[in-house]
């Protein structure tokens, strides 16, 4: 397996979906190629970084919803109630 194939299989490998027959080749290459090893680590770190930056604990979303949005939703609902 070459670095090129390894890069293609990366996602399936990370999610545990890489079929057994590729897996052995993948891991053999990985054990011998520092560059692919590093690339895999960065790929996983990237996914993690996205999750953390936008996730549950993200500072982008203060627990409080903008007050005007709350008011707008409640006012609009009254104008057009369900029943």
């Amino acid at each position: 397996m070459k670095c090129r194939e390894l890069a293609d299989f990366l996602m399936d490998y990370v999610s545990g979906e890489l079929p057994e027959e590729h897996r052995a080749h993948f891991e053999l290459h990985l054990s011998r190629c520092r560059n692919c090893h590093e690339y895999l680590a960065q790929y996983e770190s990237t996914v993690k970084a996205g999750r953390i930056a936008c996730g549950e604990m993200s500072d982008e979303l203060p627990g409080d919803v903008p007050e005007d949005l709350v008011k707008a939703v409640l006012a609009a609902r009254k104008l057009d109630p369900a029943k």
Binding site: C54, E56, L61, G63, D64, V65, P66, L69, V70, L74
Partner: peptide, 13 residues
């Protein structure tokens, strides 16, 4: 109101 306040932040994001 509770629903908007609870879920609005993440929905907005």
């Amino acid at each position: 109101e509770q629903v908007v306040r609870t879920y609005g932040g993440r929905l907005l994001a």
